[in-house]
Amino acid sequence: MLVKRICTPLAILAALAGPVVAQPVFTSPMELAAVPSAKAILAPLNALAAAGSRTVAAGQRGHILYSDDGKAWQQAQVPVSSDLTALAFPSARQGWAVGHEGVILHTTDGGATWSKQLDGRQIAELVGKSYGAPANADDPEAQRLQQEAEAFVAQGADKPLLDVWFENDQKGFVVGAFNLILRTEDGGKSWTPWLDRIDNPRGMHLYGIRPAGGSLFIVGEQGLALKLDATGQRFQQLQLPYQGTLFGLLGNAEMVLVYGLRGNAYRSVDGGVSWSKVETHVHAGLTAGIALADGSVVLVSQAGHVLRSRDQGASFAPAKPNRVAPNFAVAPAAGGAVALAGIGGVRVENLQ
């Protein structure tokens, strides 16, 4: 018996379109290892750190590189391809890297191999559990934290971490966008949200965290500056005569220096009680800075400026690097030189 085939409009369209082609499956950068590449050292790099005598750099697509002489670079084994923003090495072998998608990476061999300790999805769970159901629903602060927690959960893995600092191999902080701050006291095996321990009710981005003068400071958007009250274990807001974004800070036993947009820098010698403007004579964003072992201070800009101070940050003069390029990070290098990272990779300069 002849069976008549019924052709529906959808069947006709499918036949005309040809065979179905499988669509590529999206893999999150949190789950995709960084790709080895001979050109990784030439890619934009956002972070630098000294791991003992070794220099470690990190940047886009999960690339981490390390060098023991500042000339020959090797690419590390990294389990993610998220863009990385900051590095911290409290010792020569123990180090941490942070970046987009909330990734926190850890190394125990000076930066050659890395493992993932946390990511943005896990951070959302931590924040949700910590603040999702306040004990006192009538408390305005508890309500604010609950709303923050709900926003973190709704955003999923989108949790940019922007800086990391470790006091030693066990105790450290990571900070990031929208008031994100986490604390560990066991080398990153567990992390505790500190959103309730920081005076940042508007949820400003946190760009930098560093010690100075025996205290710990954080800087961020719209002139946000905070100092850790060690007794109360809370970051308390400081008053600055500047309302622009601050990208970072540095310090030593005598002073703390904050820096940011349009060449703005401010210095305090009384633990953040009062601040004086530092004339940098540049108008580009100051992106990174370090205090060197000889007592001098170096600031760098996104326009390629390299500034050096020999009076503990009270005044700066332009240095003369061999090559001018946008700078995103700076770190000490062997022989009193500095390593600079940004567009075009890493270069080592002996500043004049």
Rank of each mutant, 00 (worst) to 15 (best):
V3Q: 15
T8Q: 03
L10H: 12
A15K: 06
L16P: 00
G18C: 09
G18S: 10
V21S: 13
P24T: 11
V25P: 01
V25C: 00
F26V: 10
S28I: 10
S28D: 15
V35C: 02
A49W: 03
A51L: 07
A51S: 11
G52D: 07
A57Q: 05
A57M: 01
A58Y: 06
A58Q: 04
G59S: 09
Q60F: 08
R61N: 12
G62K: 07
Y66N: 04
Q74D: 09
Q74L: 10
Q75N: 12
V80I: 09
D83Y: 02
D83H: 13
T85D: 02
A86Q: 04
A86D: 05
A88R: 00
W96P: 04
W96I: 02
W96L: 04
V98L: 09
V98Y: 09
G99C: 08
E101L: 10
I104Y: 03
L105A: 09
A112W: 01
T113Q: 12
T113D: 07
S115H: 11
K116Y: 01
Q117G: 06
Q117M: 08
L118M: 08
G120P: 06
G120M: 06
R121W: 14
R121I: 07
L126M: 13
V127F: 08
V127P: 05
G128D: 14
K129R: 13
G132W: 04
G132T: 08
A133I: 08
P134C: 11
A135N: 13
D138P: 00
A142F: 04
Q143R: 15
R144D: 09
L145R: 03
E148I: 07
A149F: 01
V153T: 10
A154N: 09
Q155R: 15
K159Q: 12
L162W: 02
K171Y: 06
F178D: 10
N179K: 15
L182N: 07
T184V: 11
T184R: 08
G188K: 06
K189W: 00
W194Q: 13
L195Q: 13
P201E: 13
R202P: 00
R210F: 07
P211R: 00
G214S: 12
I218H: 01
I218V: 15
G220H: 03
Q222Y: 06
L224V: 02
A225T: 05
K227S: 06
K227M: 01
L228I: 02
D229P: 03
Q233N: 15
L238V: 05
L240F: 09
T245A: 14
G248V: 03
G251R: 03
A253L: 01
L257R: 04
V258C: 10
N264G: 14
S268N: 09
S268C: 11
V269D: 11
V269T: 13
T280G: 04
G285Y: 03
L286N: 02
T287L: 05
I290N: 00
L292F: 01
L292H: 02
D294H: 12
D294S: 11
S301R: 08
Q302F: 07
G313A: 10
A319L: 12
N322R: 14
N322E: 13
P326D: 11
N327F: 09
F328S: 12
A329N: 02
V338H: 01
V338C: 01
V346Y: 06
N350C: 01
Q352G: 15
